[in-house]
Computed example of a mutant assay.
Amino acid sequence: MARTRPTYRLVDGERIDGAWCHVWTKSYAGYYLADLFVYADGAIRCVGEMDLQGLRERLSSALITLSDPERLAPAPIREGPRWSARYPEPLTDEGFMGEVYDEIESLNGRPTSSDRCWEAIMRYLQEPTEENRQAVRRVYLTIPAHRRVYVLGDMDRQDIPLRKLITDIGQPVGGDGPIATAEMHREVLEYFQAGDRGVERSREQYGILHADDPQETQIPAITSNERSTPPTEPPEPLDLFILRNEFPAPFFYQGQRYPTVLHGYWALAAADRADHDHIRDATTVREAHETGGRVPLRPEWVLVSTAVMAALLRAKFSQHPELAEVLLSTRDARISYTGISESPHWTDRGPREGRNWVGRLLELTRAELLANRILHEEGYPPSNRAGIRVGDIYE
């Protein structure tokens, strides 16, 4: 069954993660499509609440079915030997129950039946004893039958190597295949060992090609929240509010002095030079923002606004070393820039809205500050970014 994430429910304020899929439920008028939700704590919802035993009983009594019984087409008859079959077994109620149980294990971060099968395979590779081979067999058989062909992730052989391995010597593979031999088991062992070596080579090559990929940060994400009444003077001591675009930190950019990043952003967005100057000289951040939102903006501003914001943040922090130190103190933490006054393009508003571009550009500015510091200590000249003057862009 196809499962979709994420979903969740709240229990006493605690989030319980879940997944869901489609099933058919019986009513007085026949069967209809419904959503079946499974949660990490074992709770199941589908036209009412139940647990695993309740789901089993509803499947047994056909109150819940895995397909529409009123439109169910007969299963096609597949030709050929079963031992080498490359298609999944039919989905059954018992297989579905196993899949639901695996989903609950996965939601809790515990190994599924497929994970446990791979763990058994790894133990067999390290020590190919009869006991470990039997352990592979036991765990393989716990995988829902309709999911077994996918366990190895081999598009060509599916799970055929496993079917050979779990068959006792002298017995037919899959009941109608060749007789299992010690040589067959050795070939399967070589198959897994070759795959293991291939994985190691891939990891080594990946490490070479991605040698500059940052390791996972140990510093938690930083959230920069908007304040209803931003201060007009820098507070003492300085805190992470220095990250905000409305923070009062006058700086020069292309020959013009701007009280805040928001003053500079909306002034430069204005198509008319007189509007630029009016916004630049606005008494408050709110006045600058609202005035900028009312005046005509320069053509194609949306195409250049992100680059302009990056330049303004760079100017702000490069001209205020004390602010740069606070930004650098965040090291490699992700910066979430929240708020409702600035557009979703700039702010982080959760997984479904907001692109957090200010947060991203702050991280870029932080990296540039550190790079300049390192290069300066090694004797390289500081970066000098060329740019046009504000006067030029209004001519």
Rank of each mutant, 00 (worst) to 15 (best):
D168K: 13
L312D: 05
A145G: 02
L55Q: 06
E300F: 10
I143K: 09
P296T: 01
P88M: 08
D348L: 02
V302Y: 06
P90G: 01
N132P: 00
E105Q: 15
A29V: 09
R349F: 01
R294V: 05
S106P: 00
A194C: 08
Q158S: 09
T260W: 00
L303H: 06
R227N: 12
R286H: 12
L328K: 11
A43R: 15
T330H: 04
T181A: 14
P88N: 12
P235M: 08
F37T: 08
L10R: 10
G391D: 15
G95E: 01
M1E: 10
N372C: 01
Q205M: 15
S114I: 08
Q53N: 15
R389S: 08
A367N: 04
L268M: 10
R82M: 10
D275G: 06
L63N: 11
R314E: 14
Q53C: 11
R373V: 02
R133C: 01
T260L: 03
Y150T: 08
W357F: 02
T223K: 14
F252N: 07
L240N: 11
N132C: 02
F96Y: 12
P76C: 05
R298Q: 04
T129Y: 09
G13E: 12
G153N: 03
T167R: 15
T65H: 07
P161E: 08
L369H: 01
Y32H: 11
R147T: 02
Q53Y: 05
R244D: 05
I219K: 14
V139H: 00
E226M: 09
L91K: 12
A85I: 11
P172N: 15
P76E: 09
P235G: 10
G13T: 12
N132R: 13
P6F: 11
R349C: 00
S60C: 04
E94P: 04
S113D: 01
P214R: 14
P321Q: 08
R201E: 14
P250T: 10
R123L: 04
P178K: 12
V295Q: 07
I143S: 03
N132D: 01
R137G: 06
R137N: 01
S329L: 04
L209Q: 13
H345F: 05
E322V: 00
V326L: 09
V139L: 09
Y140P: 07
Q319L: 01
S343R: 09
E70Q: 13
E14A: 14
D348P: 03
R203C: 10
I222N: 07
G350S: 01
P235E: 04
S67M: 06
Q193H: 13
L59D: 10
D115Y: 07
R385W: 05
P90S: 08
G354Y: 05
S106L: 13
E70C: 07
F247E: 06
R56W: 11
Q193I: 13
L33F: 09
L369F: 05
E190R: 15
V100A: 03
V136Y: 00
Y124F: 14
D12Y: 03
S343F: 07
